[in-house]
Design a protein around this nucleic acid. Structure first.
Length: 363
DNA sequence: TACGCGTGGAC
DNA sequence: TGTCCAAGCGT
């Protein structure tokens, strides 16, 4: 690298760290720079837990889940001792449920090693649910390792800083290399968090606040006047529409009939009301013939829900039922329903049939 | 490499 | 409204 390039890069890192010292966000899982300077270290368990929860998930959505998890399971050993079912219930609503299954698998492995997390990128990368980003994040934030942390924020900051025309995800390798060159040797964890904070608060996807940016003098895209055009991304495919029906059976005591979904795949390991398959769109009405048992099914509305790769329309049917419990189903009483491992789409379905049923009871 | 995998908020 | 997108991972 030419000397002037090296000088530019160390300047960028220094300006970013100065900005972070003054403007970093206060987050429940974060140890702020002043405490780090006094020798305080982050708890690797809390760093790991927060990073898993934050995968493709907003900080605001994660906060209450993180607080609840660490209050209930303060250590990785406590989490390993919990049941899969309790963890799925606690995760319900946060989405991407394979994360919860991998969380438990990872906790079991770490607890079996004495409760100590690996302190290298390579060691962390071998654990379930920990990919390139999360391994680098934990290694740098919890263990002060000089790792190149590249998430969506970093991709955006770097692609604007260098006005990278290569579309994502193709540009990822180039971005990772640039981050590696920018990385300051003394504060890798703060550098990673600073870049992410900058991306989340200043270098935002739309209407970035360039006038407030500590890197405005360094930014190629700002110089060219078009920071919002970066990062360049490939067009996304259209979302197909699928349709189906969901069946809400209510017992005289208010209990709702549920069953458990298969461990793998969409909403794996979560609970649901019985439904038909979710097929490509068909015209016309669904019919109650596909219900788990014959009954006086009454059409009770329709819900729509949008998943990552398809939209779903479910016709909702309701019935009162007091016969035998169908095979592989179970009843959840009105006091238990809000604590079930119900994904949001299933709460919507139940709410359409029994308004208020999944809401937490008032004390 | 490309796809499957949730949810809620911002605009 | 629809569209984008948020601290990605597993296969």
């Amino acid at each position: 690298m030419a000397p002037q390039d090296q000088s530019r890069k160390s300047g960028i890192a220094a300006r970013l760290l100065d900005w972070y010292d003054a403007h970093h966000r206060e987050l429940p899982w974060r140890v702020a720079p002043p405490k780090l300077a006094r020798g305080e270290r982050p708890d690797p368990y809390r760093v790991w837990l927060s990073e898993i929860m934050l995968q493709q998930t907003t900080v605001e959505a994660v906060k209450s889940y993180f607080t609840a998890f660490v209050a209930r399971w303060p250590t990785v050993g406590a989490l390993a001792a919990a049941s899969n079912d309790d963890i799925m219930k606690a995760w319900a609503g946060l989405g991407y449920y394979s994360r919860a299954r991998n969380l438990k698998a990872c906790a079991d492995l770490v607890a079996a090693q004495g409760g100590t997390f690996p302190d290298t990128e390579e060691g962390l990368r071998a654990l379930p649910g920990i990919g390139p980003y999360t391994a680098a994040a934990i290694a740098s934030i919890a263990f002060d390792r000089p790792a190149a942390v590249v998430d969506g924020n970093v991709e955006r900051v770097i692609s604007r800083l260098y006005r990278i025309e290569t579309p994502l995800p193709q540009a990822k390798a180039e971005i990772r290399a640039l981050v590696g060159q920018l990385l300051p040797p003394n504060r890798p964890g703060d550098f990673a968090q600073a870049t992410m904070d900058l991306g989340a608060t200043i270098c935002t996807p739309r209407r970035p606040k360039c006038m407030l940016c500590p890197l405005r003098e360094d930014c190629d895209a700002l110089s060219a006047g078009d920071p919002e055009l970066y990062p360049v991304k490939l067009a996304k495919p259209e979302k197909p529409l699928r349709r189906g029906a969901a069946f809400v059976a209510v017992r005289a005591d208010g209990a709702v009939l549920l069953r458990k979904r298969p461990e793998k795949g969409l909403l794996g390991g979560m609970s649901e009301v019985p439904t038909t398959g979710w097929t490509a769109r068909q015209d016309g009405e669904t019919s109650p013939d596909a219900a788990p048992f014959p009954s006086q099914w009454e059409r009770s509305g329709q819900i729509t829900h949008v998943f990552t790769h398809f939209s779903l329309e479910l016709d909702i049917y309701r019935t009162s039922f007091d016969g035998n419990t169908p095979q592989d189903h179970f009843w959840s009483g009105p006091d238990a329903l809000h604590g079930e491992a119900l994904p949001t789409v299933m709460k919507k379905a139940i709410e359409a049939a029994i308004p208020g049923a999944t809401k937490r009871k008032k004390e």
